[in-house]
């Protein structure tokens, strides 16, 4: 497979210009900022809150913007135009993911500098990058399965709740057996990994967490690619 950087860049540039004029989508970037400001003023921010902000950035920016960008291409019948160009599926998917990925990273860096959290551990960094890929691919999947921007934003709301604030719900429904499932969500795994690392866990101990996140990512990429290839030319 030969990726053309030129084509990926063309799609990225186009999206950048397009989204800079799209206030509706950009407004969700404010949510993690809001949380960062609220908690950042309290001085010492606990790890759970740091990861609440990180996961909200992943869902509200990464997954949501991605789903909005893809759903809009579908809604306006422009995705077909992209599919009918010499650009390959991987070029289109990479190009379309780049913008929300960059936006998420920038948001996260700004938010974490407000709340004074620095990621230094290489395994932590690696798992955050893998988690980013998971959320982007989740957003792509939502975008491909919905028909319009509005529909995509409606579907994104539960995703923000479950993947972004899953930990809060877990505390809310404590004692319920079903809540156990929440432990295996990639966002919860990410947070558990972080607390293990701060407690000085070894590489071998952090491997299961990393593996779970990786498994989520791979499954969601595979599903996304299948759905993309199935999505017909004139939806």
């Amino acid at each position: 497979m030969n990726l053309s950087v030129k084509r990926i860049n063309a799609i990225f540039q186009k999206d950048l210009k397009d989204i800079s004029k799209n206030i509706f989508v950009l407004s969700t970037v404010l949510i993690p900022f809001l949380f960062a400001f609220l908690y950042g003023r309290q001085g010492d921010v606990p790890l759970e809150v740091q990861f609440l902000i990180i996961n909200i950035a992943f869902t509200a920016v990464g997954a949501f913007v991605q789903s909005a960008v893809i759903a809009e291409e579908k809604e306006k019948n422009t995705l077909r135009g992209l599919m009918m160009s010499p650009a390959t599926s991987s070029e289109i998917l990479t190009g379309k993911s780049l913008l929300s990925a960059v936006l998420t990273v920038v948001t996260m860096i700004v938010c974490l500098s407000i709340t004074n959290y620095v990621v230094t551990d290489p395994i932590m960094l690696l798992s955050m990058i893998i988690a980013l890929i998971f959320f982007i691919s989740l957003g792509t999947l939502v975008g491909l399965m919905t028909k319009s921007l509005m529909e995509a934003s409606v579907v994104s709301v539960p995703i923000i709740f479950v993947f972004g604030m899953g930990r809060m719900f877990q505390e809310l429904f404590q004692g319920n057996k079903l809540v156990m499932i929440f432990d295996y969500l990639p966002n919860v795994q990410l947070e558990m990994l972080a607390s293990q690392i701060t407690e000085g866990a070894s590489f071998a101990e952090s491997l299961p967490y990393l593996g779970t996140i990786l498994a989520w990512t791979l499954i969601s990429i595979i599903v996304t690619v299948i759905v993309y290839n199935k999505s017909t030319l004139d939806a």
Partner: peptide, 27 residues
């Protein structure tokens, strides 16, 4: 190359940006 009756355009881009984008996309 196809031209469909209901092909879409990016409403928020300018005409020039759209053309630039396509020139790059199609090389």
């Amino acid at each position: 190359g196809f031209l469909f009756l209901n092909d879409g355009l990016y409403d928020r881009l300018t005409v020039r940006d759209y053309i630039k984008f396509n020139i790059k996309l199609f090389g």
